[in-house]
Amino acid sequence: MAKNDLQGALDLLILKTLSQLGSMHGYGILMHIRRVSDEILIVEEGSLYPALHRMQQHGWVRSNWAVTDYGRQAKWYALTRAGREQLASREKNWAQVVKGVDAILRFA
């Protein structure tokens, strides 16, 4: 049985984005998800930041302040070791969830 079901999707998106980009600030993560998903997945700020802070408390991401390409101060997030492990297990879970959902959709 796949744990963390559909609700873990946001965490998964954020973790995967960070693993792809190396390190990124909140706005960048938001834009990345939006762009890559072709505007299908739009994460709201109201969900993103609590999720980022929660993940930091869990020790999955670490953060530091740095200047952006456009000269703005921003808090940059990057995956930790624990974060990468978390991502790996979540990806596996997600595959299970998709398989399960797919099976239900195809049931005739």
């Binding site: 600030h25 909140g26 706005y27 700020e45 930041y49 802070h53 703005r72 101060q73 921003a74 808090k75």
Partner: peptide, 13 residues
């Protein structure tokens, strides 16, 4: 810090 982070986010947007 949270205030600053959110403010910067808004500015970037």
């Amino acid at each position: 810090e949270i205030d600053a982070e959110l403010r910067e986010h808004m500015a970037m947007s």
